Simulated scan of single mutants.
Amino acid sequence: MRHQKQSQEENLTEMVEFVLLGFCDVPHLQWLLFGLFLAIYVIILLGNGTILLITKVDSTLQTPMYFFLGNFSFLEICYVSLTLPRMLANLGTQRRTISLVACATQMCCVLTLGATECFLLAVMACDRYLAICNPLHYPLIMNHKVCIQLVAGSWLSGVPVQIGQTFWIFSLPFCGSNKINHFFCDIRPLLRLACGETFMNEVMVYGAAVLLVSVPFLLILISYSKIISTVLKLPSATSRTKAFSTCSSHLTVVMLFFGSAIITYLRSNNSHSSGTDKVLSLFYTIVTPMFNPLIYSLRNKDVIRALRRLVCK
């Protein structure tokens, strides 16, 4: 018993880095994946960067809806830059190690920006609700000061919870394997490596997911139920089409992001598998940021006109 405890402590002191396995189970596809993810990263940077630029410089897009959209595009750039560059480095160099401090920092930042995205999508839904259901008071309620406060609140909302959650998880003893079967440091793959009792950590993960994912999602559902109810009462078919078109882009992004996030963090432990987790994580960390500019530009005539003006200049 004493020898086993001593061996465990020795392993604990040596655990100063982890190995991100990523997609090492398909070695023959490493360079194909490198090229694919590099192309996706460039598309994300160019697409979201363009949306961010036109919402700042085009005078016709100086409204609360596009102010939130610009912040959302900036958030997507930050979010994807936390995972894709390291994934590309791992694929290109085959050096998959990450220090314990870097792993903790990455996990905390990914979780915090994920919470920011949840709340910012909820804010955008509430903005559409006020614009459609209360148009007369909308300019007074959604003034510039309120917009800044809502965005700041979205960025800061998840910081205390995720810092606490990261600290608690990395306080656990990691005395077994140091190989994380994922392409970034995420909660569940790390919990699988911890030895000792992790029940309270699992409870905390569910609690944080309910608070930071389910609550914004419920706000979005309530907002859209009110919007749909109001739009269906409009007498003109043209007015109904216009109202729905302003919401369809946002609703598409919501379903992509929240669908994968809810399945990842709120399903039971028995149904978790490393392969499924990696695929679902790709949706909310890479696929959503990639399609965000396409969804908003192809479905929005104001954005298309602003892009044309930018190209002409």
Rank of each mutant, 00 (worst) to 15 (best):
E197H: 10
M204Q: 10
T246N: 10
H272M: 10
N201E: 12
S223H: 00
C185M: 04
S249W: 01
P235F: 02
G275L: 09
A208L: 02
A194V: 06
F258Q: 06
V213F: 09
S229M: 06
D186Y: 14
S214F: 10
V254S: 04
F183Y: 05
I263A: 13
L251C: 11
L256E: 06
K242R: 15
P189Q: 00
F258V: 06
I262S: 06
N269Q: 10
G275H: 06
P189V: 01
I263E: 02
P216Q: 00
K233N: 09
L256V: 14
L219K: 03
V203S: 13
L190A: 09
F244I: 13
L221M: 13
F184A: 08
K242F: 08
C247I: 08
S225C: 14
L232T: 15
G207P: 00
S260Y: 03
V215C: 10
Y224M: 03
I222Y: 12
C195A: 06
A209C: 11
G196I: 07
L280D: 00
G275V: 09
L221G: 06
F199R: 11
V210C: 13
V213Y: 06
D277Q: 11
G196Y: 02
P235V: 04
H250P: 04
A243T: 01
S223T: 02
T241V: 11
L211I: 12
S271F: 11
G196M: 03
Y265W: 15
A208K: 06
C247E: 02
S260G: 08
S214K: 03
Y265G: 07
N181F: 13
G259T: 01
L219P: 01
A209R: 05
S249C: 08
L211Y: 08
V203Y: 07
I187D: 09
L211V: 12
S239T: 04
L212A: 10
S248I: 15
L221T: 08
L266S: 11
I262D: 03
